[in-house]
Amino acid sequence: MLDVLRILEQDGRVPAAEIATRLGRPLEEIQQALAEIEARQLIVSYGALVNWEKVSDDRVYAFISVEAEPEHGRGFDTVADHISRFPEVHSLYLMSGTADLQVVVEGNDFRAIARFVAEKLAPVPGVRSTSTSFVLKTYKAEGRLLAESGGDHRLAVTP
């Protein structure tokens, strides 16, 4: 099961038959594992890692550190749930350190994000303060280098 997840984490398009060959397992076993993986939502969805900086420049990301007021018995869950439902929010984490929540926000331009912070995020009940940092360039995302790789430097034939 772990091996299947690792393969799909690298390339979500690998068919079951190829996974079976690569791992040296019977196809039925892999199909069963995939059914279980999907039933238990171990894989939440199959997507693509798009390098939007190459596609267009009308997409901007910001990392926002949020200090929030914890709630008796629920900690930060209520405020986090509230924030996570905005479609502008790309990801949201509960953090150790000075800030309580780390919000990654996606917008068409800097102004859209500024508006989102001022008009939607800051007024959320329980949000005490926000500190916004804009992403200027992405070097690595989801474990993949996005900068041009060095390429294959090997000679074509070696001993």
């Binding site: 090997r154 000679l155 074509a156 034939v157 070696t158 001993p159």
Partner: peptide, 21 residues
């Protein structure tokens, strides 16, 4: 190997299964 290497040099779009590394 050297002999074969000379053939490959200068060819484009070659998929190399010839490397020992």
């Amino acid at each position: 190997i050297r002999e074969f290497f000379d053939l490959v040099i200068g060819m484009d779009d070659v998929i190399s299964l010839g490397v020992g590394e």
